[in-house]
Every structure is written in structure tokens, then in C-alpha cells.
């Protein structure tokens, strides 16, 4: 049982029972999850900026969306994941300092860049919790494919697979039956 951390500009992948993939306190960064749920493998990238182009070549490429996405695909595939089965989930991209200029833009641009990189690879986004002004922590269980998100000041909530709304209506029906 171990938590594999994806810190700024890092990524991790696992198919080991008991592992969790975790990105703590995402602000303007994006936590990108790739799942192959049938195989029970997953990867998580902590993406900081949209595109490597125009930046110094010596910088860590994995902090850029356009470089991190192919590398994450490679790592999850190496664990037995099948690209056509990949499901993508996006978390983060907040504007922590609403109205304070440049940080405002980064979150939005990051989300757009990750989506573009995924589209290029023909990977569909199945769930998303992005934007807003709150920091988020994302946790992934590679075996079950369950993705939970915690926003600052709240509890963990399951983002994917979508939790069926247990409406009071259906419960009443069960009780009657």
C-alpha cells in the first residue's frame, strides 16, 4: 500500500493493488488521469504549463502539457494499458488569485492545452473538475479506476465513475417493494 505522489512537473503510474496515485493541492496546475479500467492500470501527471515550444530545451519537459501527455500514455501503456481503452479525467486549473492577472490565465490555458493534447491522441475525456478558485487534491485507485477529488475546505468526493444519484425517490420505491 503506498501513495505515489505526482508533484509539480512529475508523473506516476501503477497497476499494483493498494497503490494510490496522488496530486496534492493542485492550483493552476492540472492533474491528468489516464485509466484503463479493465486492465486496472492508471497514470497521473501534474502539469504546470501549456506548451514547451519557445522555452529553454533544458527545462523539465514533463511540466508541459504537450510533452507530459505522450509520456503519460507511454508509461501507462508500459504497464499493460491499451491506448484505445484509455479514459481521461482532468482536475485542477483553478484561478487561485481571482483578478490578479497572470495566474488567472494559466489555469484556463493549462486545461485547454491538455484537452488539445488528448484530442491529438484521440483520447476521450470522461470526467472533469476544472476551473473555479479552489485548490484540489486528486487521488486515483488504479485497480478500481475510482478517482476522488477534495477541494479546500471540503471532503473527498468521487468524481469518476459518476456516482448514481441515490435520490429519495428510488429509496422510497425500494421500501415499498
Amino acid at each position: 500500500m503506498s501513495d505515489l505522489m505526482a508533484r509539480m512537473g512529475e508523473l506516476c503510474a501503477s497497476g499494483t493493488p493498494g497503490d494510490s496515485l496522488v496530486a496534492l493541492g493542485l492550483g493552476s496546475c492540472i492533474g491528468l488521469v489516464l485509466l484503463d479500467r479493465r486492465k486496472g492500470v492508471a497514470g497521473l501527471a501534474h502539469i504546470v504549463l501549456p506548451a514547451a515550444e519557445g522555452h529553454n530545451k533544458e527545462l523539465n519537459p514533463l511540466k508541459f502539457a504537450d510533452k507530459a501527455v505522450p509520456e503519460l500514455i507511454r508509461q501507462v501503456t508500459a504497464l499493460g494499458g491499451r491506448k484505445p481503452m484509455f479514459e481521461a479525467i482532468l482536475v485542477g486549473g483553478a484561478s487561485m488569485f481571482a483578478g490578479a492577472g497572470s495566474t488567472l490565465e494559466v489555469g484556463v490555458r493549462n486545461a485547454a492545452a491538455v484537452k488539445e493534447a488528448l484530442a491529438k491522441e484521440r483520447i476521450r475525456i470522461h470526467a472533469e473538475d476544472t476551473g473555479g478558485t479552489k485548490g484540489r487534491t486528486v487521488r486515483v485507485d488504479p485497480i478500481t479506476g475510482i478517482v476522488t477529488v477534495r477541494k479546500a475546505g471540503s471532503k473527498d468526493e468521487q468524481l469518476y465513475p459518476a456516482v448514481p444519484k441515490t435520490s429519495s425517490h428510488s429509496r422510497v420505491l425500494q421500501e415499498v417493494a
Binding site: 493541492g25 493542485l26 492550483g27 487561485m96
Partner: peptide, 13 residues
């Protein structure tokens, strides 16, 4: 907010 979210948003720029 979360410490990490505040600090990383400043560093990200």
C-alpha cells in the same frame, strides 16, 4: 486555501 495550491500557482508563472 490549500498551501500547495497557493504556492504552486505562484511558482507556475
Amino acid at each position: 486555501d490549500m498551501l500547495g495550491a497557493i504556492v504552486e500557482s505562484i511558482l507556475a508563472v
